[in-house]
Design a protein around this nucleic acid. Structure first.
Lengths: 349, 349
DNA sequence: TTGAAAGCGGTACCAG
DNA sequence: CTGGTACCGCTTTCAA
């Protein structure tokens, strides 16, 4: 591997000094370097396939054009990877590189990941989590521009800007979809208390009923968990051995996996979806919601948009030198998106 | 943010020169620096919370202790993230940092990701893919020590070492599990032709039958796809309207999602799993296989082990200066692991 | 045993 | 308009 060309090589080839090379290649040639020299420099650079050494640049400029992304388990878990995808899109388009470190839910690694990144002089930091959650912000994040994606500063007085999905309106619109199909008895398997998303979606569910002037049956909302078996068991409790008139006509689920369990239970019980029972998921999980039988109607999390919004905000701050929340607001909410497929239909006659 | 302490600060505080600081802190103090000075230096370093600037180090040493990981879509897809987890474990334990770049299946980004990483002077590279596949190795990977995880150098004469799961024995052991339960008519939804994993698993399936001295019914193996609906449709074809004596007593699936579809079909048809029908998955996909109802018996991919093995091999090469395949072999196969849960049982009487 | 100096690859200031 | 030079933080060689 022959070593890469340096600015000195270019200078020699063009018969000028290193300084001239630097000026020209950084667009500050005009008014400083003769037009003719500029051409020679640019040509020499092209011939040698020259590009400046980012490490030397970093050392000199004290800025690296690198953004550090710390994730709780976004890389290693099956979820929410698109937040990073959306963030990286924006970063690349603006000439930044992202480096990702995953702590695999070991919060004792948070601080050291941040310090490692800071040591390497990242220009900014982003923390991404799987699922909406409060975050004990690592101290180091306060030393450079930083944003949170899908998590919220857990301090008494929050300091970092966060980008989160609008769970309340997500819950509301999902419910409105079912109300619009004529359903009135809608059960809600609402996930687990442990996530702040659960109560927010329930709030949206209530809001939809209120908005329609309909009463909410408190006993139709269940907080349990997030997995297939939970959905299955919850559905069995709601449906098995219950007369058709007593059954809910629709079941909303706080994620697609719960919905898979519910579909499974319906199949066991000989209920046709959506003819006898409508089922809604949440998340629009890739290769689950769209390939389920029947394909799941669901509320898509705006993962890419969240990542993009967070990164945009962060880079604006990095490049301007202002703090991330310069616009005065500490929160960006991104709306969820209703995806209608085949698991929901009109209320049975 | 007050700037970090430099070696010069430490030197001043200890009343010595920068060189002395460098020597002592790199363990080459004995024989070069007076014991007493050594102590003062170490103490000063501790007091100032000194650690060398990695960027300056990189520039000086031309080595960064950074390993670049390029992934096709491991970060953004729900799959195989644990390969990176396993790799990162090993890297951290050996004092290296990994930086991950995901190309989101855009192979035109492969080369530029590698060049970016190379520009930043990574000491080694690893390419990770979702699902076993042939890889057109980006040229740049040949310039530093590199390994492949879950993919295989697609060149006429392969150059890079790869770490892959042993799909043949995975397929064989899965089949043997079912044969051991007395099943003789075992259908295999074997994924899609597009992945090299599919034919390998089929080969294992055939091997198991051969080994047991049993004939293979060629019409029991189907190549179709990898998703829930494919599994559902495949199972319906095998089971719906077919008399019990004509039905396979077990269905093997090339991944857990197919198995979900098969379970769903069985539920629709009123078949009890595993009493009437045994179902096997493959992959042990997190939060699918273990939470399915019934929980899926499956063949776990050794993702963490693969990542760890690949990184170990890579770092050995980086630290020794030898090429990655110095042991003479270009392939490491890691065995899959049978996980018995509740979806398989004895053949029906 | 110690410190001065060169150099890694750049950028930016300043005198010519 | 140009080229010399200092400096970013560290390691390493070499002379004192």
């Amino acid at each position: 591997m022959q070593r890469k060309a340096t600015a000195l090589d270019v200078a020699k080839r063009a018969g000028v000094s290193r300084s001239a090379v630097s000026l020209v290649l950084n667009g500050r040639g005009d008014g400083n370097v003769a037009k003719e020299s500029q051409d020679r420099i640019r040509q020499a650079a092209a011939e040698l396939n020259y590009s400046p050494n980012p490490i030397a640049l970093s050392l000199r400029n004290q800025r690296t054009r690198v953004i550090g992304i710390v994730s709780d388990e976004v890389v290693t878990s099956p979820f929410d990877g698109n937040i990073i995808g959306g963030a990286d899109d924006v970063a690349r388009s603006r000439g930044f590189v992202t480096v990702v470190m995953d702590t695999e839910l070991d919060s004792s690694r948070d601080a050291s990941a941040v310090e490692t990144l800071l040591d390497r002089q990242v220009d900014g930091l982003m923390y991404v989590t799987v699922g909406l959650k409060p975050l004990d912000v690592p101290q180091g994040m306060l030393r450079v521009p930083s944003v949170l994606a899908n998590c919220i500063d857990n301090a008494p007085v929050p300091r970092l800007h966060h980008v989160i999905p609008d769970e309340v309106s997500g819950g509301r619109e999902a419910t409105e979809h079912l109300l619009g199909l004529g359903h009135r008895d809608i059960a809600f398997l609402a996930g687990a208390q442990t996530s702040p998303a659960a109560p927010l979606r329930v709030q949206g569910y209530r809001g939809a009923f209120d908005g329609a002037g309909l009463p909410v049956r408190a006993d139709r909302v269940f907080l349990a968990g997030w997995d297939i078996d939970t959905g299955f068991n919850g559905a069995m409790k709601l449906l098995d051995g219950v007369s058709p008139s007593e059954r809910p006509t629709a079941i909303m689920c706080a994620n697609d996996r719960l919905a898979v369990g519910v579909v499974l239970a319906a199949a066991r019980l000989g209920l046709s979806v959506p003819r006898d029972l409508s089922i809604m998921g949440y998340d629009d999980e890739f290769r689950i919601a769209n390939t389920m039988v029947p394909a799941l109607t669901t509320m898509a999390l705006p993962l890419r948009e969240m990542g993009a919004a967070a990164m945009t905000r962060l880079l604006d701050a990095v490049e301007s030198g202002d703090p991330v929340d310069s616009a005065g607001t500490l929160e960006t909410m991104v709306p969820c998106r209703l995806v209608v497929r085949e698991s929901t239909g009109p209320v049975p006659a």
